[in-house]
Structures are given as C-alpha cells and as structure tokens.
Design a protein around this nucleic acid. Structure first.
Lengths: 241, 241
DNA sequence: CTTTTAAATTGACATTTATCAACTAATTAT
DNA sequence: ATAATTAGTTGATAAATGTCAATTTAAAAG
C-alpha cells in the first residue's frame, strides 16, 4: 500500500502544470504567482502516483504538504470512532488540497484516498508559507480558497443536520452531477457504502432512497453509473428537506 | 431592532483595544500588525453596541466588515429552510469574526446575533485586505484563524453526523465549559431551544437528555446555569457517541 | 400582586433511521 | 469454469428521534 514515488519530474512540469491544477482559471491560486515563484514551486515538488484505494494523506499525521491532483478521483473523509466515516468531498483533476490543519496545528484533520488511479504533486507547506510571505495576491487567493472550502463544509453541515434522507440524497446527486462529474449519466466509481458516507446515513438506508428515486423515474441506475432523469424533482426534494 | 451606532470612538481605542480582541495572545491576529497598521485599523473602525437579541450580522447580506467582539456573548448560526437554525459557534469577549464569505463571494454564510449585550467594533474588509497585502505575517495569521474555524466546523460536522444525542449533548456541555465559559457552574444565557440548535436536535429531545444527565448526577441544572459534576462521565459519553 | 405571555417540561405517539439477518448479484481467486 | 469472497439488495424489526398536545414553571407586563 505504500505510494510509489516517481523521482523524475513529470513531463509537464516544465510546462507549469501546476498552473492548471484547478478547473476554473479564476480560482486557480497558482495563476497569481510570478514565473520565478512558480519555478520555485515546481522545482522541488514531487510527482506521486497512487493506485485505486491507496491512501494519499492520512488523518492525524503531520500536515507537511499541499497536494495537487493532476488526474483521477479521490475522496476526502473524516474518520470517526469505530469505522465510521464521513466523506466530506470528492476531488478530481486540477484540485488543490490545502486546509485541514496545514496552517494551524499542523495535524491533518482528514484522510484522502484514491478512488481511481491518481496522479498528483506533493509540495512542501513551507514553500507555500514562503510564497504567502512574498506574494500578497497569492496569500489573498489562498484565503479565498480556504473560505470556499469552509462554505462548502458549512452547507454540508446544515444539509445533513436539517434534512431527512431523501433531501440529502437529492442534494448529493445534484452535487455529483453539477460539481464533480459535470455530465449526465455519470459514473461515480463509488460504492454504495461510499455514497452513503457522503450523506451521513447507512448503506441500507441510502439504497432504499435510491430505489424510491428509481421507481419514481427520477433517476436511472446501472451499477455505479447514475443518470438523472428529472433534475427538477431532485431540486424540489433538496429544498424541502 | 436597528443597532445604535456610537459615533464617537471608544475610550479604549487610543489604547489599541483591538490588540486584545482574542483571548489567547498567541492567537490574536492583531498582534502581528505594526503600530502604524494598527492605527490605520483603529482610526476608521466603528464601535457599535447591541442589545440582547439584536442581529449583528445577517446571513445573505454582503460581507463588507469584520467584527471584533469587545464584550458580551453572541451566537453564530446558519439559517436553513423554514425557521430551522444550526448554531455553529458562540463568540465571547475578544473574538474576531472573519470567515463566512468575506474572502469569497462577499456574501455572508451565517447570521450573528447578540445573546447578551454586545459591544463590538466593525472594521471594513477592505482594510483587512489592505493589511493582507502589506503584512505577510498578518496574512499568515489570518489563514491560521480561518483554518481553526474550519477545523472546529469539521469536528462539529463529524460529531453531529456520527453520534447519538447523548454523545452530542455531552460534547456540547464540555465545549461550553472548556472553550466558552471557562468556569464550572456556568451560565449559558441560552434557551433550551438555542442549546438544542447547537446539537442539531429538537428542544424536547435536548431536554430529555439533560434530564437523564441530571438523574444520573452527571450535571446539576438551574435555569440556564449548568454545573458539570462528573466531567469524566461526559467525556466517556462523548467518546462512545 | 395579579395577569399575561413565553419558556420549559412531560407524556403519548408517529416517523425516521439503524440494525440484523437473509439472500442475490457481481467480482475475484483458484 | 467453479469456488470463494465481496458488494448490493431486501425484509423484518428495534432503536432513535421528532411531532403534537397538555401541563407546569418562570418571566414580563400591567
């Protein structure tokens, strides 16, 4: 289960691959670095490849790195007492993983695990700290990124505490379609257990809600592939909780 | 319900009262400003007084200010559909309210309401942005502060989703004693409804758990005052969920 | 000090959700 | 290909939690 570290720099490095580590150009914090600063980052980064199922970052270990996902899908989850997990987020190609203790007590607050094969870059936090000092625009953008993660978590928290299961499943399906996979029949590659862990319910309960949605012709399901047939119905379900 | 704005600068301003806007000296982001920077901040800030129950910041309005609590107790909560509230945090004397959209879409993600009388200072976000640009240490500390808030929210999220009601109430009581009121019989000044809103359960359920704790001699309750008699028992309850 | 109003408490009951066990389908290993 | 293992599904049931209504207590207003 040990990640295989590829020592040689990735082919794209010279091409500033980190510049593309976020979908939305405007949101990419690395856009705000000068060429020299980017070189500094790129020079010392490590390119690491993970197989599906491998742990990329482990909760309660020291948070010494920031990770850029270059390709693949990973899940971020908080591990609770006794096997309990809460999947907070999925991260796909061009995501940047900061937060979760990097700036605080240096202890990671969550685990990140590869869902598919994952190609990513590890960058020392120290480098980031250095850039925060040097480049105020970068610091500001990092604050923004942090804030965005905060907001997503807040909405999650509110949804899970205030909504019944159908509303939560509806929200999850909309989130998967509109924010993660960006296509309509989409293949989650996630097990039912993992999907359930994103909504804070048991697998059995999740399956039952999914079944209801199927028989109401709101969705079609084939294995880990989900097709949303009636998005409006999901929106209504999400609204009313 | 309109806040009464006291135009004249507060008596302590000349004395850099903002320097004391956080309990823990080490955690106070204003410690990292130079005298000149602090002057800039203090000069244009507004001192505002709120009566108990008044709204200090309102969810979904523009996030144009950062607020320092100088005295009193306030609650931060997210408003859901139809009266549903989730109290995320209490803030007491010397807290700084950033986050919740200040650096992002400029829309507040939560409401802040005075529980007791609250004396606070409003500072334009622009001033903060200016300082982030000028002073990288300050930027770094602000990132830390943000991160700390994130972590607290994450723990909250995990607790509420993975624990049964007794565990959640136990966690809440420990939180109130050890992180907010810092004394043992402590007077929450919060209604049962508000306490319930901190744990994501109904008032009736909350009262029942409290009653159980009382009859097990884990706590003693007198109105809004709570006395923790057996902290270890609460820790065990919180652990096992 | 009484009246009025709001908050806290309790009980009965309905609903939601989890747990457990059985079973089927799919995947992996032999 | 077949056996063994894992993931997915279903049903029955129990436990947790919410809802509603009634009652008590406390607080505010007159």
């Amino acid at each position: 289960m040990e990640p295989r570290i590829i020592e040689e720099a990735c082919a794209k490095c010279k091409d500033h691959c980190c510049t593309r580590c976020l979908n939305d150009g405007e949101l990419n914090i690395f856009n705000y670095l000068t060429k020299e600063e980017l070189e500094l980052l790129v020079k010392e980064k490590r390119h690491v490849h993970f197989k599906a199922g491998e742990t990329i970052l482990k909760q309660n270990t020291s948070a010494s790195h920031i990770v850029c996902i270059r390709s693949g899908l990973a899940k971020i989850f908080a591990e609770g007492e006794g096997d309990k997990k809460l999947i907070l987020n999925l991260v796909a190609t061009h995501s940047i993983l900061t937060g979760g203790g990097i700036f605080m007590d240096e202890i990671r607050q969550f685990t990140v695990q590869a869902v598919t094969e994952v190609d990513c870059c590890f960058i020392y936090s120290d480098k980031i700290f250095e850039l925060v000092s040097k480049n105020s625009t970068f610091a500001f953008q990092l604050l923004k990124l942090n804030n965005r993660q905060n907001i997503r978590m807040l909405n999650n928290l509110v949804g899970i505490t205030q909504k019944y299961m159908p509303g939560r499943v509806a929200d999850l399906l909309l989130y998967l379609k509109n924010e993660i996979f960006l296509s309509n029949p989409f293949d989650t590659r996630l097990s039912r257990q993992e999907l359930a862990d994103m909504t804070g319910m048991t697998m059995e309960s999740f399956i039952r809600i999914l079944k209801e949605f199927k028989s109401s012709a709101i969705i079609a399901v084939d294995g880990s592939q989900i097709h949303i047939l009636d998005e409006d119905a999901l929106i209504v379900l999400g609204k009313k909780g």
